[in-house]
């Protein structure tokens, strides 16, 4: 059994207007230390204006083995893309 502190995943917003993006992970004994560690490890050069940390064990992930079945419902619906539609030559602004 590992003596490690819990693992947290770190998400960083690089600047306002952008969404948080996964940066890596840190171990920490509690949430507050996780935030401090994430700051020290992942933003030494002002890479962020906001950090989220979340316990890795709280993330629910899709199964890579099931990827094709899981995403299958979207595969045959090509009419969801604008390029599916034919517009006559000469029609503009559409």
């Amino acid at each position: 059994m590992s003596k490690d502190w819990p693992l947290y995943e770190v998400f960083i917003r690089a600047k306002s207007g952008l969404s948080h993006r996964h940066a890596g992970s840190v171990h920490a004994p509690d949430d507050e230390m996780a935030l401090n560690h994430a700051r020290d490890v992942y933003t030494r050069r002002n890479e962020g204006v906001s950090i989220w940390v979340v316990r890795s064990s709280n993330i629910i992930a899709s199964d890579p083995e099931e990827t094709s079945a899981f995403f299958e419902p979207a595969k045959d619906k090509i009419y969801r893309h604008p390029t599916f539609y034919e517009i006559p030559e000469g029609v503009e602004n559409i």
Binding site: S2, K3, D4, L7, G24, S25, V26, H27, D40, V41, R44
Partner: peptide, 22 residues
């Protein structure tokens, strides 16, 4: 300090393969 940080990025990457930091 960067070297310490680099060590930590890499330990995290290794942990994704199922080994523990410990």
């Amino acid at each position: 300090q960067d070297e310490a940080g680099h060590g930590l990025y890499l330990y995290s990457a290794a942990e994704t393969l199922g080994t523990s930091r410990d």
